[in-house]
Amino acid sequence: MDFSNETPIYLQIMNRLKSDIVTGKIKMGEKLMSTRELAVSLRVNPNTVQRVFKELENEGICFTKRGMGTYVTEDEATIALLKEQLANDLMMVFIDGMKKLNYSLVEIIEKVRSYGEVNK
């Protein structure tokens, strides 16, 4: 995984895990890698991974079974909400960028439609 300099590393890992959960790469109720395993495979500090798990837990996306590990939530509503959030985040970045290029909302919608038709 390549990391950028703009955002904190733990946020980058969190986003990656979130999109993996939303897309089903990581299934609902599935056990996540241990802190150490994930740290080794991403080659990041174990403390960073620990923070990732803590934040994911706070957001209700994951939960920890004592002595067993960290699992993805089985609550579909939470994951649906997460998907919504991720989509909103992307949308925000996109629309911000387009507005900087002086596109109006209507123009943006039109642009998206014609873009979608060309790149089916």
């Binding site: 150490r36 740290a39 080794v40 080659r43 990041v44 500090n45 174990p46």
Partner: peptide, 8 residues
């Protein structure tokens, strides 16, 4: 690097 992380 993997070895360092794993040991820590």
């Amino acid at each position: 690097k993997e070895c360092i992380i794993d040991q820590f």
